[in-house]
C-alpha cells in the first residue's frame, strides 16, 4: 500500500524572514528544551495555559498562519481527549488540564522549531551537537539521520491512519478497532522495511569513516 501523506503533525519548514526565522538556532533549541522542562515544572493549569498562549502568539507573530497551527489538531485532539478524560478520572480536572496543556506546549514548541528551521540546518546542528560523542564510538551523522527519518515518518504514519480509516468506512467497518488499527501496524512495518532498504542501498546507514 502506498501511504497517503497527511500534512504536518509537526509542521514542515515554512520559508520566511520573520523574527523567529532569523533567531539563532540555539535559541530555538533552548525554547524546545525549556518547554520540555516546563512540562515538569508548571504545576498549575493556568500557568500552563499562559505558556501555551505565549507559544501560539509567537507562532502567529512569525506569520506561520492559523491554518498550519490547527491542521494537526484533527490528529492529536482524539489522543489529548482520551488523555484528558483518563487523567480527570484519575486526578481531577485541574491536574488533567495541566497535563494536557503541558503536552500541547511541548508539541507546539517542537512545531515552532521545525516550521522555522530548514531540515538540513537542523541536521547540521544535531550532527554538530553529537560530535563530542564520537570519542565514545557514536556516529554524529547517524544521529542526524535518525532525526530526519523521525520527522519524515510522522506525516506518513498519520496519512496511513487516515487512509486506513477511509478504507474501513468504505467497507462499513468504521466501528471496528481491528479494521482501523491492524492495517496501520502492517503498513508501518512495511514502510519501515522500505525505508531501511533505501537507506542501506544509499549507504546512509553505514558507519562513519
Amino acid at each position: 500500500m502506498r501511504a497517503r501523506i497527511s500534512p504536518g503533525l509537526l509542521a514542515g519548514y515554512v520559508p520566511g524572514h520573520s523574527w523567529l526565522h532569523r533567531a539563532p538556532l540555539w535559541t530555538k533549541f533552548a525554547g524546545v528544551l525549556a518547554a520540555g522542562a516546563a512540562s515538569f515544572m508548571l504545576l498549575d493549569w493556568r500557568a500552563s495555559a499562559l505558556a501555551v498562549a505565549a507559544v501560539v502568539a509567537a507562532w502567529l507573530s512569525a506569520g506561520l498562519g492559523v491554518r498550519r497551527l490547527v491542521a494537526p489538531w484533527r490528529l492529536i485532539a482524539p489522543l489529548l481527549g482520551v488523555l484528558f478524560a483518563f487523567q480527570w478520572w484519575q486526578q481531577g480536572p485541574a491536574a488533567s488540564g495541566r497535563i494536557v496543556l503541558n503536552l500541547l506546549l511541548c508539541f507546539l514548541a517542537a512545531a515552532l522549531l521545525t516550521a522555522t528551521v530548514p531540515l538540513r540546518e537542523l541536521l547540521d546542528a544535531v550532527a554538530g551537537a553529537a560530535r563530542p560523542f564520537r570519542r565514545f564510538g557514536a556516529d554524529p551523522e547517524r544521529f542526524a539521520l535518525a532525526i530526519a527519518i523521525m520527522l519524515r515518518s510522522i506525516p506518513v504514519l498519520a496519512g496511513s491512519f487516515a487512509e486506513v480509516g477511509d478504507a474501513a468506512r468504505a467497507r462499513g467497518l468504521e466501528r471496528s478497532v481491528r479494521a482501523r488499527t491492524i492495517p496501520v501496524v502492517l503498513s508501518a512495518v512495511a514502510y519501515a522495511r522500505r525505508t531501511g532498504d533505501a537507506l542501506a542501498a544509499r549507504g546512509l546507514g553505514d558507519a562513519d569513516d
Binding site: L119, L145, A148, R152, T195, A198, L199, R202
Partner: peptide, 9 residues
C-alpha cells in the same frame, strides 16, 4: 517507488 527512498522533504 521513489517515495520509499526520498528521505528529505
Amino acid at each position: 517507488d521513489p517515495l520509499s527512498q526520498l528521505v528529505m522533504p
